[in-house]
Amino acid sequence: MKEVTVISGKGGTGKTSITASFAFLAKNVVLADCDVDAADLHILAQPQVIHEEDFFGGTKAVIDHDKCSNCGTCLENCRYDAISASFVVDHSACEGCALCHYICPESAIRMEETLNGKWFISNTRFGPMVHANLIPGEENSGKLVALVRNQAKLIAEEQNMDIVIVDGAPGVGCPVISSITGVDYVVIVTEPTMSGLHDMKRVAELVKGFNIPSSLIINKWDIHPGMSNEIEKFANSENVALAGKIPYDKTFTESMVRRKTVVEEASSPAADAIVQVWKKLNQSVWQ
């Protein structure tokens, strides 16, 4: 079984639409949506939820005002400015470090587990899917990513699936690191813009640091062929294989509006390109 994560560095490059297309083209696949901050894969996959669980991501401090003597020890020592002058914990700033809990002379502060979101196991027309919703504004998305990946792998092992395809988060930080550590292969989707190149370089450096084989897809390559060339050159010099290029095609977005992947619909330049890219990728992954 192989675990493959699709990431992008820059947002809006078509990562999720391409991931869903791969899911349609792959056989025996488990899907994992690890872009838990702003999960979109479900819009295309239309999952039927068969199992749902709460996600408790961490703990937050709660001050018991009956015991609190307003001494200010917690406020002085909290490094996250999470305690107000009236000794109320700002939920969105609290890191859950429990320092205040340990230093409060009145033992007035307890740590409470917080509900950060929900995760789901679903059936889709592509196969089983594990996905999650982080409560808007909540933290610990990296932890939720780890959980979603673990569940997807368990399903893949139980049902003897060949591949887990993970839709990763944008950026290079916590949720991204969490969605690529220990996977077998990483696919980077970028676009031929200065920002696309810049962000792709950073994310490629991250992947290189983890020593994971990877390849690159340039989406909408023909909106700027010159920049596309430059990206290809960079990939070459960094030993990142080019899995292929997908042309700009209005069908791509139109299919998304119809909640379909472009490869499920009538043949189009984008769909044909994605089919080719998938063939090539599938070979590299199993090499």
């Binding site: 901050d37 702003a38 969105s92 700033a93 982080l134 504004g137 909540e138 933290e139 998305s141 944008p170």
Partner: peptide
């Protein structure tokens, strides 16, 4: 701000 809706976004817009 960064994209998304979790801690980095909240830290920014606060």
């Amino acid at each position: 701000a960064p994209p998304g809706a979790s801690c980095p976004v909240i830290t920014t817009v606060k």
